[in-house]
Design a protein around this nucleic acid. Structure first.
Length: 790
DNA sequence: CGGACCCGGTTTTTT
DNA sequence: ACCGGGTCCG
C-alpha cells in the first residue's frame, strides 16, 4: 500500500454549500480558507445530525472550532446557545482558546462549553430541588466516595475484607455509567456484591442526599433523571441549546449518550466528533457502540470522514493502518498523507527490560544530537509511551543514572494529593461546617489526641441528636465525654471552625487571607514544617500553590466548586525533557519521536484485558497500539524484551502478537548492538519448559510472518554468541536440563540445590540465600561453573 | 497513639 | 518488588 500517494487517495465528498455561505467564505473568512474539503464540509453542514469521523491527526479540533465560529458568524446561534461538550477540562480550555483566537480576542461568552460533568453541575444547581438536593450541594471525589461506602458497608455488617469497598464503588460507578438509578438496576445484577449490591447502592444514594452531596456519576445521573421526568425543564434546555457539539464521542458512556440524546431530540442539530479506532476507555464504561450506532440513532445523519493525515509520515501511517485493520466492526476510514514516506517504523528486541531502557536512553541521546541524516531533535519532542505505569520505572532508573532529563505525565493530580485534599477539607468546613466528610478528614490532622475512641463518641452523639459531627463534637465537649488533652484541642478545633465560618460572612472577608489563617491556626502547615520526610517541602510548596490559585476566584465557595471538577497539572517548567507517559495519557498528543516499549504478549496486549473481556478487550488493546503509533510524526520505534521482572519474579516474554500484525513493508528490524545479539535468540528459546498451552502459542509465533521476518533478518547478520546463547543450547536440548536435587549456581544467590521444578522455573534452596524461585536460564549446573562464566 | 509486622493485590484514568 | 491497609504490641 502506497499510502502517501496522493493520487490514490479517496476524494471526500464536498457537501453542497448554499450560495449565501459561499459568498461569506469568498469574502474571506480565514477560518474557512485553510480547511481541506472534508473539514470544510464538516464545518458547513450546520443543520441536522452530523457525525464527523476524524482519524488521528486529521485536524478534527480545527474543524470543530471552525464549526463553532461558523455557527456564530452565520448568526445561527449566539455564543450562549451553543452547547459544546468535551471529556476533559484541558480539552475544553483548549477549545475555548482556539475559538477565541479564530473570533479575534472575543474569548468570553460560550458559557456552555465544558465537560459533561461541569455542564451537568451547572444545570443541576438550577434544579437541585427536583432530585432532593439543595443548590449548594457538594461534589465528592472518589476518595470521599470510598470512605462513605466503607461506613455503609460497616453499618450493613459486611466484612469489608471479603467484599472490598472498591468493588462496590466500581459496581455503583458502572451502574451510574449506564444511567441506572437503584430502582432501575436490572435483576441480572442482583447477585452483585454478595447479593447486597443494589441494597447498598440505594443506601449510598440516600446517604448522599442527606449529606447534600453528589458523586461524579450522580451529576450526570441526576440530570438525566430530571430530563426524563420533567418534560418542561427538558424543553427549556432543548430550546436554549440550538446547536450541540460533542468531542471524543467514541468515549461516551450510556448516561452521557442519553444526556445528549435527550437534549438533541427536538432539533437534532448535533455534531459528534470522534474516531471509533481510538476508543480506549471501554473499561471505564465508554460504549464504542454509541458511535457505531450514530446513524441509526439519528436517521438521515450526515457522516463526514476526515482522512487526510497531517501528522505522520507515510510509513508510520501505513503501519498504524495495518494494525487497526485486524479489528472487526469498524466504521472504516482510510487515512492518507500527502507528505513524505519518511523512515520505516523500527522494531527491536532486547534481552530484558533494563537493556531496553538502556538502549532507548542511548537512542534518545543520539537523536538529540542528530543521527542518520536526521536533524537533531530535542528532548521535548521525544516521548516514551508505555502500556502500564509500572513500566516507567525502568526508564526513570536508567535516565537518572545517565542524567537524561525526563518528565512523567500522569500520576496523582494536583488536587488529588494528600495535602491539597486536607487543605480543601479545612476550606470546606469553613464554608459549610456541616460537611461531615471534611470534619472526619481533618479533625485529628494534625494529631489532636482524638483517636478512634473519641471520634466514635462524637459520631454516636451526632447520630443520636441527628446533627452534624461538628455539633456532635460540641455536645461531647459539653458532656465532658472526651478525655483530658484531647478535649482542649477539640475545643480549639471547634472554635477555629466557628471563627473561620464567621469570617466568610464578614464584609471585609478576604478569602485568601482566610485560607492562610485556616492553614496556620489549624496547625496544618506547622505539621508539614515539622515533618522531616523528603516530600514535606514539596507539600508545603503545593500548599502555597493552592493558596495562589485562590487569587483567580472571588470566594472560597467558587474555588471549591471549581477544584472539585478541575485538575490543573500543567506546572511544568520550560526545561527540555523526554516525556514518559501511558498510552492512555498520550491520546490527542503528538511527538516527532515516539518509543513504544514493552510490546510483549501479556503486557501489551494486557493479559488482564484479554481475560476479562476477551476479543473485545483485545480489540481495545489493538486500538491502543494504533493510538500509540499514530502519536509519532517522524520516527516510531517499537521494542520488546525477552525477559522482564513482573511482581519481583523474572518472566520470559513473547513478542506481542501486534508485532506480527505490522505490515512488513513499513517496518525495519533492528538488531541491538549490545552484548546480547539483539535478544531474538533469547526470545526463541524462552518458555520451552512452560505449559503445553504456552508451547502451542509459541508455535504460532514461530510460524507467524513477523517472526520469520525477524529470523531472516538475523540469519544474514553475524550474531555474537554470548554466554546466554550457550544456555540456549542447554535449554533447547531438553525441556528441563535439571532434575530434583541437582546442585546449581546462581550469580547472585550462589550455590544451591533444586527442590522443585515447574516449567522453566526452579525452586532452589540456596546455601546462603534461602529458597528462591528462579528461571532456569539464570542458573548453571554447579559443576560447570568454571566453564561458563557469567 | 505510633511503630513494627503481616497480608493481599497489583492496567489503563477522568470527572 | 512494592505499596497500602490492618493488626498487634509497647
Amino acid at each position: 500500500m502506497n499510502v502517501w500517494d496522493e493520487d490514490k487517495a479517496p476524494v471526500p465528498q464536498v457537501a453542497a454549500v448554499p450560495l449565501s455561505q459561499r459568498a461569506t467564505a469568498a469574502r474571506g473568512a480565514p477560518y474557512l480558507d485553510d480547511l481541506n474539503p472534508a473539514q470544510r464540509a464538516a464545518v458547513e453542514a450546520l443543520d441536522g445530525p452530523v457525525l464527523m469521523l476524524a482519524g488521528a491527526g486529521t485536524g478534527k479540533t480545527k474543524a470543530l472550532t471552525a464549526r463553532i465560529v461558523h455557527l456564530l458568524r452565520q448568526g445561527r446561534a449566539r455564543p450562549n446557545e451553543i452547547l459544546a461538550v468535551t471529556f476533559t477540562n484541558k480539552a475544553a480550555r483548549e477549545m475555548k482558546e482556539r475559538v477565541g483566537r479564530l473570533l479575534g480576542e472575543v474569548a468570553e461568552g460560550m458559557p456552555w462549553m465544558g465537560t459533561f460533568h461541569s455542564l451537568s453541575a451547572k444545570i443541576l444547581r438550577r434544579h437541585a430541588e427536583l432530585v432532593g438536593l439543595k443548590p449548594t450541594f457538594t461534589i465528592l471525589d472518589t476518595d470521599d466516595q470510598l470512605r462513605l461506602l466503607k461506613q455503609l458497608i460497616a453499618a450493613a455488617n459486611i466484612d469489608e475484607k471479603r467484599w472490598p469497598a472498591r468493588l462496590l464503588a466500581g459496581l455503583i460507578d458502572g451502574w451510574k455509567n449506564r444511567a441506572w438509578t437503584p430502582e432501575k438496576v436490572p435483576s441480572s445484577e442482583a447477585s452483585a456484591y454478595n447479593n447486597r449490591g443494589t441494597e447498598l447502592y440505594e443506601a449510598y444514594q440516600a446517604r448522599l442526599k442527606t449529606l447534600n452531596a453528589v458523586d461524579f456519576g450522580n451529576l450526570l445521573l441526576h440530570c438525566v433523571t430530571i430530563f426524563q421526568t420533567r418534560e418542561d425543564v427538558l424543553q427549556q434546555y432543548q430550546r436554549w441549546f440550538r446547536y450541540i457539539l460533542v468531542d471524543e464521542y467514541q468515549d461516551t458512556n450510556v448516561a452521557q449518550y442519553l444526556w445528549l440524546r435527550l437534549l438533541a431530540q427536538s432539533h437534532k442539530n448535533i455534531c459528534c466528533v470522534g474516531d471509533d479506532d481510538q476508543s480506549i476507555y471501554g473499561w471505564r464504561g465508554a460504549e464504542v457502540g454509541n458511535i457505531l450506532r450514530f446513524e441509526k440513532d439519528f436517521p438521515g445523519a450526515q457522516v463526514i470522514r476526515l482522512e487526510q493525515n497531517y501528522r505522520s509520515t507515510g510509513h508510520i501511517l501505513a503501519a498504524a493502518s495495518g494494525i487497526i485493520a485486524a479489528n472487526k466492526g469498524r466504521l472504516g476510514k482510510t487515512l492518507w498523507t500527502a507528505g513524505e514516506p519518511g523512515d520505516k517504523l523500527r522494531l527491536i528486541g532486547h534481552w530484558d527490560g533494563e537493556e531496553e531502557a538502556r538502549w532507548i536512553g542511548e537512542e534518545i541521546e543520539a537523536i538529540q544530537r542528530g543521527t542518520r541524516g536526521h536533524e537533531p531533535i530535542d528532548l521535548n519532542h521525544q516521548a516514551i509511551l508505555v502500556r502500564a505505569s509500572h513500566q516507567m520505572r525502568a526508564f526513570e532508573d536508567r535516565f537518572l543514572t545517565i542524567g537524561l532529563p525526563y518528565r512523567v505525565v500522569g500520576g496523582p493530580r494536583f488536587y488529588e494529593r494528600q495535602e491539597i485534599r486536607d487543605a480543601m477539607a479545612y476550606f470546606r468546613l469553613a464554608v459549610s461546617p456541616d460537611d461531615d466528610l471534611a470534619f472526619e478528614r481533618v479533625v485529628n490532622l494534625p494529631k489532636r489526641g482524638l483517636g478512634d475512641t473519641a471520634q466514635s463518641k462524637i459520631n454516636q452523639l451526632a447520630r443520636a441528636a441527628q446533627v452534624s459531627l461538628l455539633d456532635g463534637a460540641r455536645e461531647a465537649l459539653a458532656k465532658g465525654v472526651i478525655g483530658g488533652k484531647g478535649a482542649s484541642q477539640l475545643r480549639a478545633f471547634v472554635d477555629g471552625v466557628d471563627r473561620w465560618h464567621a469570617v466568610t460572612f464578614h464584609p471585609e472577608y478576604d478569602h485568601i487571607r482566610l485560607a492562610e489563617t485556616i492553614l496556620d491556626e489549624s496547625g496544618y502547615t506547622e505539621m508539614w514544617r515539622n515533618d522531616k520526610t523528603p516530600e514535606a517541602p514539596g507539600r508545603l510548596d503545593n500548599l502555597k500553590e493552592l493558596v495562589k490559585a485562590l487569587e483567580q476566584f472571588d470566594n472560597l465557595q467558587g474555588f471549591l466548586e471549581h477544584v472539585s471538577l478541575i485538575m490543573d497539572n500543567d506546572t511544568e517548567g520550560a526545561e527540555e525533557k523526554v516525556t514518559i507517559m501511558t498510552l492512555h495519557a498520550a491520546k490527542g498528543l503528538e511527538f516527532p519521536v515516539v518509543f513504544l516499549p514493552g510490546w510483549e504478549d501479556g503486557l501489551f496486549p494486557s493479559q488482564r484485558s484479554m481475560d476479562e473481556t476477551g476479543l473485545k478487550g483485545l480489540e481495545e488493546e489493538r486500538r491502543l497500539a494504533y493510538v500509540g503509533i499514530t502519536r509519532a510524526e517522524e520516527l516510531c520505534t517499537i521494542s520488546f524484551a525477552s525477559n522482564r521482572r513482573v511482581y519481583g519474579q523474572w518472566q520470559s516474554q513473547l513478542p506481542s502478537r501486534f508485532i506480527d500484525e505490522l505490515p512488513a513493508d513499513h517496518v525495519e528490524v533492528l538488531t541491538a548492538p549490545g552484548l546480547y545479539g539483539g535478544g531474538y535468540g533469547a526470545a526463541a528459546q524462552v518458555g520451552f519448559g512452560s505449559s503445553l498451552e504456552d508451547r502451542v502459542s509459541k508455535a504460532d509465533v514461530y510460524n507467524s510472518p513477523g517472526w520469520k521476518r525477524m529470523q531472516e533478518n538475523q540469519s544474514h547478520r553475524p550474531m555474537r554468541q554470548p554466554q546466554e546463547a550457550r544456555h540456549v543450547v542447554i535449554d533447547a536440548e531438553a525441556l528441563s536440563p535439571y532434575v530434583l536435587g541437582d546442585r546449581v549456581f546462581h550469580q547472585k544467590f550462589g550455590y544451591g540445590e533444586i527442590m522443585g521444578i515447574e516449567g522453566d522455573k526452579l525452586d532452589v534452596e540456596f546455601d546462603h540465600a534461602g529458597t528462591k524461585k528462579v528461571v532456569a536460564r539464570w542458573v548453571i549446573p554447579a559443576d560447570q561453573v568454571d566453564e561458563v562464566p557469567f
